[in-house]
Amino acid sequence: MTLVSLDALVAGARAGLLVSFPTDTVPALAALPTQAALIFAAKQRSQDKPLILMAASGPDLWPYVQGSDREYKIWQELTDKYWPGGLTLVLPASALVPKVMNPTDPTTIGIRVPANAIAQNILSRTGPLATTSANVSGQAPLQTMAEIEQQFPEVLTLITTESQNEVSAMGVPSTVAKWTGMDWQILRQGAIKLNF
């Protein structure tokens, strides 16, 4: 049985274990950025599909990206509008990002702040975590903690009450926008509709 309390999940994540918790889009599989290889292994995910760095707030994420003052201003205008929420920005990675987060292109990192109180509580206590949807690669994202516990028995999965059991607010993954150096490129239209 790997369903655990919030405190046990936070302690497990800090200790470098694989954890799962609800977000505002689909439930997340998460680990410390340095332990990101655990996520690739559990999901049977190919190395060319990078993970997302998720945190409780924008200021927690800015140290992991690098850009000019002008770029930071552009990025923050977008995050002020859509964070917390279902928007992932792919930005130039700083030296703080472990290569294992994005093995085939360590120069970029996807970052996001979820609009979910449980996720924010966890992330405010663990610091930024490497995350992705909770599912075997290529399969549909799992929607409940019970399904996650069944498919990933080795993962510390958050116990939720009956009312929270259908934890996925939307079941739609985040929108992913990549900064090209000049403007935005939409890699995936998801929870937030963007038009540039």
Rank of each mutant, 00 (worst) to 15 (best):
Q139P: 00
L87M: 05
K193E: 14
T104K: 12
E149F: 00
L187A: 00
L61K: 08
A177K: 01
T157H: 08
D7N: 15
V26C: 10
G171M: 04
P141A: 01
V26Y: 07
A169P: 07
N195D: 15
V167G: 15
M101H: 06
W83A: 06
S20G: 12
R125P: 00
D69A: 15
L87K: 03
A119H: 09
Q47I: 02
A169G: 15
A36F: 02
S46R: 14
I74D: 05
M1G: 13
T160W: 01
G171Q: 01
T88P: 13
L187T: 02
A30Y: 09
N102L: 10
A37D: 14
P106Q: 09
A41M: 02
V100Q: 15
N165L: 13
T23F: 12
L89G: 04
I111Y: 05
A36E: 02
K178D: 00
D60L: 07
P92K: 03
A41G: 02
K49W: 10
P106V: 13
T126A: 05
I109A: 12
L18S: 14
V26L: 09
G67H: 07
P103S: 05
A117E: 15
V136R: 14
I192Q: 01
V19E: 12
T79Y: 08
T131R: 09
A30T: 04
K193F: 01
G190V: 03
S137P: 11
P128I: 09
N102A: 15
V172T: 15
I122S: 07
T79E: 01
Y72M: 10
L29V: 04
T108L: 06
I159M: 05
P153T: 08
A8L: 01
T131Q: 11
G181W: 09
D24I: 10
N116W: 11
T132W: 01
W184S: 04
K99L: 06
S68L: 03
P92S: 04
L129P: 05
P114Y: 04
E162C: 00
L194A: 00
W62E: 06
L3K: 13
I192R: 00
Q143M: 13
G171W: 12
